[in-house]
């Protein structure tokens, strides 16, 4: 396996050496050392490291400011703070801009390696699990459209997406526990109305009926999928739970989950399209 390349940003040659020593004989390889924030940014652009360790006090800028600059270039960058200071305010400010972990100097080699391993493993493990979980959501989506309304599905499509634009009515159910994310069902008001008529088996449906029915339908898809996943995970500690649905009403509204990559599944039916989006942000 290729080594994981690390850029060290720290103005103290002593600390740079300690970090290099801590990472020696591991799966990490120090690809660059920078003594200032601006040099750190320059080397980041040049080297594209997998990980960055950042000191908080740099001669030319604040370490968090330097993190901010790097995260502007590449929002997915894994940056950890290694600094003499570590308090709640620093952790909150750092987390807010996307820092992955905080270590206090002097950091023990085994603590640093364990922390970095966790960040790398979390990313790899989650990606595999989440792709697998998506299949349960797709199956529940397909089955419940047919079972609950009798509407036949003409085709199912699946694509990765970042920001989403609602078609008129969107129901969001949050996912929490060992995996965090959300499921969203989205459809136009016209499709929602016809769908609700089919769900309730009546032609007279109020706006309230539509909101209630579509949110319950979303809840059922989410509940079925998560039950299957929980059976698979068995251990209660890894259980996934759902939050109650919330409903968004309005056209051309954008729904953004900054840390989330999600999949949109489109079910084309005779009454129009239903969009299900499932996204995860990685485990606890």
């Amino acid at each position: 396996m290729d080594k994981i390349r690390v850029l060290i940003v720290d103005d103290s040659p002593f600390s740079q050496k300690l970090l290099k020593d801590a990472l020696a004989k591991s799966k990490y390889e120090v690809c660059g050392c920078a003594g200032t924030g601006s040099d750190g940014i320059r080397q980041y652009r040049e080297l594209h490291p997998d990980l960055v360790t950042m000191d908080l006090t740099l001669p030319d800028m604040d370490g968090l400011e330097c993190c901010h600059e790097i995260l502007t270039i590449a929002p997915d960058t894994k940056i950890v703070i290694v600094s003499a200071m570590k308090d709640e305010a620093i952790i909150n400010r750092g987390t807010a801009i996307g820092v992955k972990a905080f270590f206090q100097k002097p950091v023990k080699s085994e603590d640093l390696l364990a922390g970095l391993d966790h960040i790398i493993a979390a990313q790899q493990g989650d990606e595999a699990d989440q792709q697998h979980f998506l299949e349960y959501f797709i199956a529940a989506f397909q089955k419940n459209i047919m079972d609950m309304t009798g509407i036949s599905i003409l085709s199912m499509d699946n694509s990765t997406s970042q920001a989403l634009t609602s078609h008129g009515l969107a129901v969001i159910v949050g996912i929490t526990g060992s995996q965090q994310g959300r499921i969203m069902l989205d459809l136009s008001m016209d499709v929602a109305k016809i769908f609700t008529k089919k769900l309730l088996g009546t032609d007279a449906v109020s706006e309230e009926d539509i909101f209630n029915s579509i949110s319950e339908f979303t809840n059922i898809i989410a509940g079925h999928s998560v039950s299957q996943i929980n059976n698979l995970l068995k251990d209660r500690e890894y259980e996934i739970r759902l939050t109650p649905p919330s409903i968004l009403i309005g056209e051309s509204i954008t729904i953004i989950n900054p840390k989330m990559t999600s999949n949109t599944v489109i079910a084309q039916t005779v009454i129009g399209s239903l969009y299900m989006n499932v996204g995860f942000v990685g485990g606890k």
Partner: peptide, 20 residues
């Protein structure tokens, strides 16, 4: 209490229902 990740919603003139 367990909390879900935040969903940020941006747009003109939309409304939402947070509770039944």
């Amino acid at each position: 209490v367990d909390i879900s990740p935040p969903s940020l919603v941006v747009g003109e003139a939309f409304k939402l229902k947070v509770s039944s």
